[in-house]
Nucleic acid binder design. Structure first.
Length: 591
RNA sequence: GGUCCCGUAGCUUAGCUGGAUAGAGCAUCUCACUUCUAAUGAGACGGUCGCGCGUUCGAAUCGCGCCGGGAUCACCA
């Protein structure tokens, strides 16, 4: 039970006795400038009390003193009743926190249906970039948070492995590759394939220019460019199952997957199941036919199939082309249904950029109209784009921030900062490399996850991400310092009991911050927002640093106090580690 | 044009199920390391919460209308 829960019910009882109030009672944290642990706003009760705000506050305060041992003091400031909790309450809270199995997180019920989270979902024609990084970090963190809220989670990605884009890379590789492979080039496969995608684009633009010089207009030139025709021919061959094309396709895609997996590994994420569009693009047609029979969709004279969503404030939307082939929507309908058949899940979250808000609104509506009960449990975690100071990232202009490069730069920054500060003495080369990775990635991940997912964010590659202040490394540092103290304390007997120690103000604030952890996790899960956990982790680190500055640990006045503070330190360290873990950030033992 | 999202100190942002004097970090300026890691702590400076009207005892928070930024409205994916 949260500290406030017992108090809330006591307040509720008092209000009912005094004024016959039976509505909800909400307490808030007392502002720092006033004495107290919890505050009741009495304005809502004035009509019933028929007294001034201050008098009402005092009346409720007196009644609470008499009614419950939880409250030892109160003060009334205008309409605000500030309540001071008994020290037994604080002690009881810390007892609950330190004895908890994994404070803050709920245990997963393995029998209950899981929550599925789809994220990353790349195309196989180029390497991952900064936009994917935000997506991946959000998806992974939300998955961890859902788990911590007591849900089993299935993480999936859908890989767009077929279509013109990959044929472009394939064609360029055939033309200009000279049989090169990731091994022979010494290059990650996704980057190598991406190079050929760029190569194609160069070729294409050259051909278009040439044709236009010969007098064709732009549209005609684009359609007639030989390389584009070749690619379209290749796509047809792919669809017809041409052995050679399929073989090349499989080979180049496997290069890309090796590259992606390397990046995923560095980021510390994984997927329980991959869906491939080459397999899922046929899904959905059957469901459309069924819906057509039940009148959810309608067929136009030309044979195309539509849904009318004008009553819902949207438009009419095509779900099957005139020639009976699928559109994106068709496939998404089929894939969603497939997933609920593949797994025991009762909800599905899509981590996809806000440019697809409309698409998902329509998709969810259609599934609802098709009568799936789980349609209400579909959620589009819509996040804002990552832009550069100059605007959008554009691959043509070479302004795309590559994920691998970015990770490498973060590690390099961590290295130079650590060396500058002289923090790496006594570490082996492997340990150092590991530490720079942990810190650099921690800085990047926190930088991205601390902001509300919905907000678009600007990333300036010229300015390195901070390691001081409201950052990942700040939290990691707080953890490392605690671990350092705990190492020094090893073997020291430090038994203590509440009879021997009293809780000072900083310790109390630290305990109260720790106490918020479970609620922070639940709120983050409810709102699909890692930013809530990020903010909590920061608050906790801050509360600890304040406490630490004011209180000697190993040199405390009494051995009992040493024991108490050590336990408070250890409890804080593990909470910090858990919170960082929910963000996909590692907590170093030293730094 | 219709629809959706965003707008809080110079910059990055928290607060958004309505509550006290709107919290942080960066930057700038003080102070604190012979003492458990100064990637830290304590403090100063900095705000018409885009603008207006409304609801309310009370609005950054809710409603309406503007302004600014972004996205989207393809038989593209």
């Amino acid at each position: 039970m949260h500290m406030a829960d017992a108090l809330e019910s006591a307040v509720s009882t008092v209000l009912n006795t005094l004024y016959g109030w039976d509505g909800p009672v909400e307490l808030q944290e007392t502002r720092k400038d006033f004495e107290g642990d919890a505050t009741l706003v009495v304005f809502p009760f004035l009509k019933l009390s028929r007294k001034s705000p201050a008098d009402t506050a005092r009346e409720v305060g007196e009644a609470l003193l008499a009614a419950t041992p939880l409250v030892v003091r109160y003060n009334a400031v205008q309409g605000f009743l500030n309540l001071v909790l008994s020290s037994e309450q604080i002690q009881a809270r810390f007892d609950a926190i330190r004895t908890a199995e994994a404070w803050g997180t709920a245990s997963v019920d393995p029998a209950a249906p899981a929550a599925m989270v789809e994220f990353s979902s790349p195309n196989t024609n180029k390497p991952l970039h900064l936009g994917h990084v935000r997506n991946i970090l959000l998806g992974h963190s939300v998955s961890r948070i859902l788990e911590a809220s007591g849900r089993k989670v299935v993480q999936v990605q859908i890989i767009n492995d077929r279509g013109v884009h990959i044929c472009k890379s394939m064609w360029a590789w055939q033309q200009f590759g000279g049989g090169i492979t990731p091994e022979s080039a010494g290059k990650k496969g996704d980057h190598l394939v991406g190079d050929f995608y760029v190569r194609f684009d160069q070729e294409y633009r050259g051909q278009v220019r040439e044709l236009m010089a010969q007098g064709l207009d732009e549209e005609a030139a684009k359609a007639q460019a030989p390389c584009m025709r070749a690619v379209q021919e290749m796509l047809r061959a792919w669809e017809a199952g041409d052995t050679e094309v399929r073989h090349l396709w499989a080979t180049m895609n496997s290069w890309v997957y090796d590259g992606f997996n390397e990046t995923y590994r560095r980021l510390g994420v994984h997927f329980d199941r991959n869906y491939y569009e080459s397999e899922t693009y046929v899904l959905g047609k059957h469901d459309i036919e069924e819906g057509l029979a039940r009148g959810v969709f309608y067929r136009r004279d030309d044979g195309s199939v539509w849904i009318d969503l004008r009553e819902e404030g949207l438009d009419e939307k095509l779900v099957l082309r005139r020639d009976g082939t699928s559109v994106y929507m068709t496939q998404d309908i089929g894939t969603a249904i497939q997933r609920f058949a593949d797994f025991s899940i009762d909800r599905l979250t899509y981590v996809v950029g806000n440019e697809q808000d409309y698409h998902f609104k329509v998709l969810f509506l259609i599934l609802k109209k098709l009568g799936y009960a789980w349609a209400d449990q579909l959620y589009h975690l819509s996040y804002g784009m990552v832009d550069l100071p100059s605007g959008k990232m554009k691959s043509r202009e070479g302004t795309v921030v590559d994920a691998d490069d970015l990770l490498h730069e973060m590690e390099a920054t961590a290295r130079s900062l650590s060396e500058e500060l002289g923090k790496t003495e006594g570490l082996g080369e492997a340990e150092k490399a590991k530490l720079y990775q942990v810190l650099g990635h921690g800085a990047l991940k926190y930088f991205i996850l601390k902001v509300d997912p919905r907000k678009r964010m600007v990333f300036n590659p010229e300015e390195s991400i901070d390691f001081n202040g409201h950052t990942g490394p700040f939290i990691q540092y707080s953890h490392a310092r605690i671990k350092s103290i705990l190492r020094k304390a090893e073997g020291r007997p430090a038994a203590w009991s509440w009879a021997e120690v009293s809780v000072d103000e900083r310790s109390k604030e630290l305990i109260q911050t720790l106490d918020r952890f479970p609620e922070a996790v639940q709120q983050a899960a409810r709102t699909y927002s890692p930013a809530v956990v990020a903010q909590f982790a920061y608050d906790l680190a801050k509360a600890f640093n304040s406490f630490y500055q004011a209180n000697p640990i190993l040199n405390a006045e009494t051995e009992a106090l040493v024991g108490f503070r050590l336990e408070l330190c250890a409890t804080t360290a593990s909470a910090l580690r858990s919170a960082l873990d929910l963000l996909g950030i590692e907590a170093p033992e030293r730094m």
